[in-house]
Computed example of a mutant assay.
Amino acid sequence: MKLRKTTSAVALLLAAIVTLTACGSSEPRDVLADAADGHLVIGTKFDQPGLAVREPDKTMTGFDIDVATYIANYLGVPADGITWKEAPSGQRETLIKNGEVDYVVGTYSITDNRKKVVDFAGPYYIAGQSLLVRADDDSITGPESLEGGKKLCSVAGSTPAQKIKKSYPGVQLQQFDSYSSCVEALHRGKVDALTTDDIILAGFAAQYPGEFKLAGEPFTTELYGVGLPKGDTAARSKINDAIEDMIATGAWQAAWEKALSDSGLPLPPPPAVDRY
């Protein structure tokens, strides 16, 4: 009888261990330890032309992908040691905090509120919020021109959506789960404009030549950073080293030209890394 009780207790303990293992850790990852093991899980977007796209054959392409891959290689992880995980705008902090990704490279604007939750390396790019409209629409020239009943689309949890709500409360803002959904709504006439950063919008305009155009001038400054676990200063320092190396070797400019030379945007100067 005692043996049966012991056996039952062991079985229950093993079952609990298996369950916990299956559920995964809810702690942030150790980026450099994972890199030393030869594998990294990187969060990014899957639907942003020119920046980060998951192709039909499941390969990843775009400027953000090249930046993320360069960083991984600098940390000692080859391309085949990377697992790509989709990181929608509203889920990026959660993915980092719960240890589902090592770091995020996905048009991730550095903001004071986000820095309370995660750390950032970079910036690796400086963008500006703008508007995408249908090519035949000349009525929209900036955010102020949207306040007369126009419908504007952005992504829930994104910096552009938050800025519109704060600075232009009279605009009819519709928030979708992805920018590709906003592009589809714009194409179908369900909304009048899409707002996010100019580099993202230029990628969509290049993907659909003659259908869309950028309207007005950028009205914010967005610093794109690499999001990583809060307090992982060693990883942040190494990733900053990687970004500076990418810029110094010319790989940064080459990656931008390969991915975005057809977007209509001029080649920007590379940013200075913030060693806060």
Results as ranks from 00 to 15, higher is better:
residue 213 K to F: 07
residue 232 D to I: 09
residue 123 P to Y: 08
residue 218 P to M: 04
residue 260 L to A: 09
residue 177 D to G: 12
residue 219 F to R: 04
residue 186 L to D: 03
residue 247 I to C: 06
residue 73 N to C: 14
residue 18 V to T: 14
residue 2 K to Y: 15
residue 34 D to A: 12
residue 164 I to Y: 00
residue 16 A to H: 07
residue 72 A to D: 02
residue 271 P to A: 10
residue 13 L to V: 15
residue 154 S to I: 04
residue 262 D to H: 10
residue 158 S to C: 07
residue 31 V to H: 02
residue 265 L to Q: 13
residue 200 I to S: 02
residue 87 A to F: 03
residue 275 R to P: 01
residue 258 K to E: 14
residue 35 A to P: 04
residue 265 L to V: 05
residue 157 G to T: 01
residue 143 P to C: 08
residue 47 D to V: 06
residue 216 G to M: 09
residue 145 S to P: 11
residue 213 K to Q: 08
residue 135 A to M: 14
residue 223 L to A: 14
residue 20 L to P: 06
residue 273 V to D: 11
residue 32 L to H: 06
residue 27 E to R: 15
residue 202 A to K: 02
residue 148 G to N: 12
residue 83 T to A: 11
residue 198 D to I: 11
residue 120 F to T: 03
residue 238 K to Y: 04
residue 270 P to F: 11
residue 167 S to T: 13
residue 67 V to T: 10
residue 265 L to F: 05
residue 254 A to S: 13
residue 142 G to L: 03
residue 13 L to R: 09
residue 1 M to I: 15
residue 195 T to E: 06
residue 41 V to F: 04
residue 2 K to D: 15
residue 64 D to I: 00
residue 44 T to P: 00
residue 52 A to M: 08
residue 114 R to G: 11
residue 61 T to A: 12
residue 49 P to F: 10
